[in-house]
Design a binder for these strands. Structure first.
Length: 336
DNA sequence: CCGCGTAA
DNA sequence: TTACGCGGG
């Protein structure tokens, strides 16, 4: 998932406080939904579900995260993927196979009573389907949070929104938006500082990467970074067997990119992948609009339709849209 | 993931 | 005040 260039970014992933994150956050919707669906699960891997068996993990995640971001004066806009390029077909089918294996392993581990293995397999089985996308968009509408459908990759669209000044930064756990030219990437935009990784708990805090600082520090161009990514493999090409980020960096610095490809994978033409990263399909028209939340709409959807507890919903709504009767009034002016 | 209750 | 475990749907 995402391009494996993390080792090159050591020293450029800076911890960042919430004060510095005020602004417009262009959130990779697929990435966020995947995080919610894969992580918000019971210990045996069962996701949150309503009485009809529909998954609700993502609704819980969006609701509480939205409240948190608004409190921090961060304006989120969610960017959904459009049609994937043909170049991505192989990645898409490989992901489907991983999911199906995860599903089988999950059922297997449940039968064995191995809860930890079940949780891990369940995470791998996560799938963002039409119902999840549709319900997430309905909830965002009720919350007054804008979202858009990108023509193609969401991360490419996020980069374009930053370039045109509409967004302040891109939010994703993956690094692809850097390849698409996003000048600022923020990871771990979460409130709780803890996350389960390989069964262990790790402390996580928001971090920021500036693309210009990264390229200056590494003394390379974005084109070179893209070539490195192509050698190690992206969502749009396989990468060369046996070449990781460090070797790829060396090869590109020495100007041996073409030579290595000719030798290791003569049939592969890297130009369409380069072209896709450098000028992907994006729209320049979109301007997000934040509206006041519709508390009744949120209640109707989450309590009536999906069986959320009324008390919990009231608590969150009070944070997002303080009612006049209670102490609130203090942050309603933010909308006008 | 997030909020809450409880413990220290 | 902060840390941890639990339940959420």
């Amino acid at each position: 998932m995402g391009v494996p260039i993390r080792p090159l970014l050591e020293g450029y992933r800076h911890p960042v406080g919430w004060e510095e994150l005020k602004g417009v956050a262009a959130i990779d919707a697929h990435n966020a939904l995947y995080q919610f669906i894969s992580i918000i699960r019971q210990p045996d891997g069962t996701p949150l579900k309503d009485t009809e068996g529909r998954i609700t993990s993502h609704l819980s995640g969006i609701l509480f995260r939205t409240a948190h971001l608004l409190e921090k004066e961060i304006s989120p806009v969610y960017i959904y993927d459009g049609s994937p390029p043909d170049l991505k077909q192989k990645t898409i089918s490989e992901r489907r196979e991983v999911r199906e294996a995860g599903q089988a392993n999950w059922e297997d581990a449940l039968r064995r009573g191995d809860t930890e293995a079940a949780y891990r397999a369940a995470m791998a089985s996560s799938r963002i389907d039409h119902a999840i996308i549709g319900s997430s968009q309905r909830l965002l509408d009720a919350l007054g949070i804008p979202w858009m459908q990108a023509p193609s990759e969401g991360e490419a669209q996020s980069a374009a929104l930053i370039e045109s000044g509409v967004a302040t930064y891109s939010v994703s756990q993956d690094y692809d938006s850097l390849l698409f030219g996003a000048s600022v990437l923020v990871r771990n935009l979460t409130v709780s500082g803890k996350r389960r990784i390989r069964g262990k708990q790790q402390t996580i805090s928001p971090e920021r990467i500036y693309l210009p600082e990264l390229l200056d520090g590494l003394s390379m161009t974005r084109e070179m970074l893209i070539d490195i990514a192509i050698l190690v493999g992206t969502d749009f090409n396989d990468g060369i067997y046996g070449i990781g980020p460090k070797k790829a960096e060396k090869i590109v610095r020495e100007g041996r990119f073409d030579e290595v490809l000719r030798e290791k994978d003569p049939a592969f033409d890297p130009d369409p992948v380069r072209e896709f990263f450098l000028s992907p399909p994006v729209t320049r028209e979109y301007r997000p609009e934040w509206r006041p939340p519709d508390p009744e709409g949120v209640r109707e959807m989450l309590i009536e339709e999906y069986g959320f507890s009324a008390d919990r919903i009231s608590g969150v709504l009070e944070r997002i849209a303080p009612s006049r009767s209670s102490s609130g009034q203090k942050r309603l002016d933010q909308w006008f």
